[in-house]
């Protein structure tokens, strides 16, 4: 339920940002975005879906609070870095670390689950949400990893970014 509430909160706030007579700001913001920024959005979406899947399957015993914390941190950090403090350069690193953390916690708890519950008993125990969780956790990680390679801002649109990219060119 917590994940649902967070998802709804983000969507509502983001939709208010897109509407309410602020279309110009939105357009300006989108103009500054490169393809890399658009890579962040699906990462947030897969994270949200992952959170929902954890919520659905939590009682089964193969999810941990660690994964939940990682995913919530990922979403919150992305929103804060992208929209509020505009330090999007840090997003790929944060996403890789947090999505990796999600997977590690998931592996550990799934291992414990297998070791504790399943050993010696019928192997009919993994629900579909475990399979879906695996897919979405990996998707989140892959998207995060891919965003490392893609520029987050269009050249020349933001001063700071320009400086950074100029510096990169000098190396």
């Amino acid at each position: 339920m917590l994940s649902l509430e967070i998802g709804i909160f983000i969507l509502m706030n983001y939709s208010r940002f897109l509407t309410g007579g602020k279309m110009k700001k939105v357009k300006d913001f989108l103009k500054t975005c490169s393809i890399g920024t658009y890579f962040i959005f699906p990462t947030i979406v897969t994270s949200l879906i992952s959170l929902i899947l954890i919520g659905v399957g939590f009682q089964a015993g193969y999810h941990s609070y660690g994964s939940i914390v990682c995913l919530i941190l990922l979403i919150v950090l992305d929103v804060v870095l992208l929209i509020i403090i505009k330090k999007e350069a840090f997003i790929p690193a944060a996403n890789v670390i947090l999505s990796l953390g999600t997977i590690l916690f998931f592996i550990l708890t799934s291992y414990n689950y297998v070791a504790v519950v399943v050993t010696g008993i019928d192997i009919e125990n993994f629900n579909i949400d475990w399979v879906l969780s695996t897919i979405f956790f990996i998707a989140t990680y892959v998207l995060s990893f891919a965003s490392i390679f893609i520029p987050l801002k269009k050249k020349g649109k933001v001063e700071n970014q320009q400086i950074t990219e100029n510096n990169e060119a000098k190396i």
């Binding site: 990796l100 590690l104 592996i107 990680y141 990893f145 490392i148 390679f149 990169e168 060119a169 190396i171």
Partner: peptide, 21 residues
């Protein structure tokens, strides 16, 4: 330089991931 910077980030992420696993 940009390529190297990106490569170093990618290497760090890759090796870090494998090390964690």
């Amino acid at each position: 330089g940009k390529i190297r910077y990106t490569t170093s980030k990618a290497l760090l992420a890759s090796f870090g991931t494998v090390l964690s696993l």
